[in-house]
């Protein structure tokens, strides 16, 4: 479905040293530096998959999305999506994709959402009968009936995002690119958006490529993660694999009857202790959890123990550190 092979892209960025003299000088002569946005990125995505594309700011996520959606032409590499090369067959190709930029709107600001939808129908030349069917389905599943006749500028961010996603699906695309679809949304709206994404993926088999900084999105949606940092692909696999590779730490919270001696636990980092409570961090590569608990049980009268796997966000932070991003 999607085959990306060795794409690279670099940008020329004008150097802008501060100071008035440099500002004047730069009018006549500018020095440029080449910034490699992405370097030799390859992956394949089969139809119907949800892929989380993650990485810190400036890692090259948007550049990749722009290349895959036909906006930008890469310097090197090939990309074949549904048999098209996105940047060569732009007008034919873009009929098959939907793109949502969480930070920007694709709707006309001052008119009711419905007007925007009708204009999109004409832009994409959607036949009337399939437009009606799709619209009905979207109104129902995205719960748009009450907001569709409201001008976009009067909608809340969560309402607007539902309308944005609806707008990108009117022409029944096979691939949906979602660039930070949950940014700025409250908890309820986030969950609504996630559920909808899951639903269209399951029911209509739409392939979804999702970039986000919200790891809960990834955990809820993505079977597969592509991690990019400083323009290179660092990890390609599922969340379990990511946990196995990096998430070897467990957090143990132990509650016990009052104990005023210091705890003796080798190979364990103690995050905090009080008279009757300790939070420990265990690296399962150095020692295992049951040993730690039995050592603990020898020293104190345990009341309760909870063990938590490392949250995915910590893993990502750890990976960023490991790769020095």
């Amino acid at each position: 479905m999607i085959e990306v092979n060795g794409i690279s892209k670099s940008f020329l960025v004008a150097k802008r040293p501060s100071g008035l003299w440099h500002a004047v000088k730069s009018v006549f002569h500018r020095e440029y530096t080449t910034v490699e946005a992405i370097k030799d990125i390859s992956f394949t995505i089969p139809a119907g998959e949800i892929v989380g594309y993650i990485g810190p700011n400036g890692a090259g996520k948007s550049t990749t999305i722009k290349i895959m959606s036909g906006i930008l032409v890469p310097d090197h590499g090939t990309c074949s999506i549904m048999g098209y090369t996105p940047w060569e067959d732009r007008t034919l190709y873009v009929k098959n994709i939907g793109v949502v930029f969480g930070q920007r709107t694709q709707l006309w600001w001052d008119v009711p959402v419905m007007d925007s939808y009708e204009l999109l129908r004409d832009i994409y030349k959607i036949p009337e009968h399939s437009y009606k069917a799709t619209l009905e389905l979207l109104i129902e599943t995205l719960d748009l009936s009450e907001i569709i006749h409201t001008p976009v500028r009067q909608l809340s961010l969560g309402q607007r995002m539902r309308c944005e996603i609806g707008a990108s699906l009117l022409h029944s695309p096979d691939i949906l690119f979602l660039d930070e679809p949950t940014i700025g949304l409250d908890a309820v709206s986030k969950i609504a958006v996630r559920q909808f994404i899951q639903r269209i993926n399951k029911e209509r088999g739409i392939t979804i490529i999702l970039t986000t900084h919200d790891m809960n999105d990834i955990e809820a949606l993505a079977e597969r993660i592509l991690l990019i940092g400083k323009g290179t692909l660092l990890y390609d696999g599922n969340i379990q694999g990511l946990r196995g590779k990096f998430g070897t730490r467990r957090t143990i919270t132990a509650e016990y009857q009052d104990y005023d001696q210091p705890l003796h636990l080798p190979e364990v980092s103690i995050l905090s202790t009080t008279a009757n409570r300790a939070i420990l961090s265990v690296d399962t590569e150095l020692t295992n959890v049951s040993d730690v608990i039995s050592q603990l049980a020898n020293q104190v009268q345990l009341m309760d123990v909870t063990i938590q796997a490392q949250p995915i966000e910590d893993i990502i932070v750890q990976m960023y550190k490991e790769y020095q991003l």
Binding site: I71, T91, V94, R104, I123
Partner: peptide, 14 residues
């Protein structure tokens, strides 16, 4: 400047 031109490139029209 607003990046709106990218949006135009995503639509199947000239």
């Amino acid at each position: 400047r607003d990046g709106e031109f990218d949006r135009l490139l995503l639509r199947p029209r000239s």
